[in-house]
Design a binder for these strands. Structure first.
Ligand SMILES: [Zn+2]
Ligand SMILES: [Zn+2]
Ligand SMILES: [Zn+2]
Ligand SMILES: [Zn+2]
Lengths: 161, 161
DNA sequence: TCTTGTTTTGTTATAGTATAACGGAACATT
DNA sequence: AATGTTCCGTTATACTATAACAAAACAAGA
């Protein structure tokens, strides 16, 4: 499973990650009586197939190849749906999307993004999230949504250098 | 001064904030032997005049009015310069820019953005920043830059409701 | 099955954000 | 004045995202 424990592990069997993510998505949608349509399923799979966050326009050609309409609204609608269900996250600094490894449970993730190889992993950030929420609260600000994104150098790229 | 202490204070004399920010910018550039050209100075002033984060294309008309060229590269160059010097920050979730109230000292800020009135304030987030840095480090990830952005409801808008 | 209301998708157009590339002007230094 | 550097003007274009409306697919009751 593509979880925090194997963050930045390059040698794992990623097809396993993908399959599990797709299974979870299917059961999650079923449980919520939502339709994981072919387009949505394909978009989710494409996002998962990349360890790098994927831009919306990088997804379009694959949709076309699969015989679907491939105009921007198609992919953005699918991404909107997947985001609403917590199946993918959007990384604002990159205008790109990445699959969430634990879409079922409420969680607060931060993204560690490598400047060199462009991989990104979602790490738990509950503690930081709580801290920020408290500090904001002290200023009278009610937190509804947080985005924590970190640029830097991943262990693999450090080793290479 | 438009600092954390008066975050979300609507009734302060903002012209004071602006003047102080401009003074600081001038001395900071002088100290660094950099040129705070008329365009850069105007862009910084425009950003400061708004309590809401300002999009690049919202700045262009004012540049035109002031007699400058007003094509996108003009404002993006100025914003790039101001960002590099820490005089403004970019808020990724909004594609918008906001003046930094303490550009001289190294600091880690997070942005509290109100969904209702669109104001944003920069609050100190050193503690959260350190926490995240440590957690990333534990995964072998070297942090170079962090972005913490918080959406929610500011005290003024809560009072109104 | 037929009807009807709802959700999803196709399609076209357009809005919004950001950068590439190159020439010319302004500036600083000698 | 000559020279190298930085900054700006200008045009074009890339990239990201949404509006609007029609057609199709689906779900559920009559
Ligand atoms: Zn997640
Ligand atoms: Zn890397
Ligand atoms: Zn700042
Ligand atoms: Zn507000």
């Amino acid at each position: 499973m593509c979880a925090d424990t194997i963050a930045f592990e390059t040698h794992h069997d990623h097809s396993q990650c993908i399959e599990q993510a797709m299974d979870e998505a299917r059961s999650l949608c079923k449980a919520r009586s939502l339709r994981l349509t072919p387009i949505r399923e394909l978009v989710l799979k494409l996002v998962w197939q990349s360890h790098k966050p994927l831009g919306a326009y990088e997804i379009l050609p694959a949709l076309a190849e699969a015989g679907f309409n491939s105009a921007p609204p198609t992919v953005y609608r699918a991404l909107d749906f997947l985001q609403e269900q917590g199946l993918v996250h959007r990384i604002a600094m990159l205008n790109a999307f990445i699959g969430c490894p634990h879409p079922d449970d409420a969680h607060h993730g931060c993204f560690l993004i490598c400047r060199h190889c462009n991989t990104a992993v979602e790490a738990d950030s509950s503690a930081a999230e709580a801290l920020i929420r408290e500090q904001a609260s002290a200023l009278g600000f009610t937190t509804e949504q947080q985005s924590i994104e970190v640029l830097g150098c991943c262990p693999n790229c450090q080793e290479r250098a």
